[in-house]
């Protein structure tokens, strides 16, 4: 009986002393945290993707609160949550936000299996980065998609998938949050974040090959050969040609689609446009391919 009593008294005293110590310490050394941090964090999506450029959502909430104290939220955007989330954050912090256009990832390579013949076989580690270090890859194009899917594994939103038939990645624009993880993962810098566009309509040069036209077209039938036809056609100065490669500036492009129809190699791609009513006369072959492309993208 005595033992039990002693045990209870001893343990009880320890508990009492410890609780007093803990209470004093927690009061004395309490870390004063801005309550807004927690609130902003709860609004952010919690994906910790790093798309905003900060280490995870807590890093972003830190930056947002600091920016609010400095008086402006400009330049900060959660690509995943988009305008809606940023609006809620701005409300909470009592700030206004500037409207930024929604973006989407775009794969700038059209070198499907039929367009780009395989000239060798890669037998090493199936990984774009490893393959990129070993040379041009299985085709003669040293710039195009390697097809091992580093972008697919980098995407945390299940928005990018390999198309088995073409061997190229395809972006699901409904799921894409434009966090930019795929852009960083691609060793060949093929993927670009472009303006999502009205009704998701976009026009872009689907090629990054900087070789001379003759070499590029030998490696891939769908390569941009830098001929400059699109440059002449564009009325809005949206197109530049550098290193034998055309590029459409999406801030200037007005989606008139004139460049697309003059491109001799069909390197200029468009998404989500309705089928053209009049059949454009395209020289010789490749007509089928362009129609196929539209169909697959409609799906």
């Amino acid at each position: 009986m005595n033992f039990i009593l002693i045990a209870v008294i001893v343990l009880g005293t320890i508990a009492l002393v410890s609780s007093v110590v803990l209470y004093v310490v927690s009061k004395k050394f309490a870390v004063k945290e801005d309550p807004r941090l927690e609130q902003v964090l709860s609004i952010l999506p919690g994906a910790n993707c790093g798309g905003c450029g900060f280490p995870g959502c807590s890093g972003m909430s830190d930056a947002l609160v600091k920016a609010a104290d400095n008086g402006s939220l400009d330049g900060l955007l959660c690509p995943v949550g988009g305008q809606e989330t940023m609006g809620r954050v701005a409300d909470l912090l009592g700030m206004a936000i500037s409207n930024t256009e929604p973006m989407a990832a775009v794969v700038r390579c059209n070198g499907s299996c039929e367009m780009r013949p395989r000239i060798s076989e890669y037998n090493g580690l199936r990984n774009c980065k490893a393959m990129n270090a070993c040379g041009a890859g299985e085709t003669g194009c040293g710039y195009g998609c390697l097809g091992c899917g580093d972008c697919v594994s980098a995407c945390q939103f299940d928005a990018i998938h390999m198309n088995r038939e073409t061997g190229l990645p395809e972006v699901d624009e409904d799921k894409c949050t434009s966090c930019g993880a795929c852009v960083k993962a691609c060793p060949r810098h093929i993927i670009e974040l472009r303006k999502k566009g009205p009704k998701n309509r976009r026009i872009y040069v689907s090629c990054v090959n900087k070789d001379r036209g003759a070499i590029a077209s030998k490696a891939c039938k769908a390569a941009c050969i830098g001929c400059g036809k699109c440059l002449k056609e564009c009325q809005f100065d949206a197109i530049t040609i550098e290193n034998n490669l055309s590029y459409i500036d999406f801030t200037k492009c007005r989606l008139c689609r004139k460049c697309e129809s003059v491109c001799p190699t069909h390197a200029i791609a468009s998404t989500n446009f309705p089928q053209r009513k009049t059949v454009v006369e395209t020289p010789k072959t490749n007509t089928d391919n362009s129609i196929n492309k539209e169909e697959t993208e409609v799906k």
């Binding site: 090493g124 580690l125 990984n127 980065k129 490893a130 270090a133």
Partner: peptide
Amino acid sequence: RPILDNIRLGKS
């Protein structure tokens, strides 16, 4: 296993 392929990647 592709040990060296992975190491080369890390090394570079």
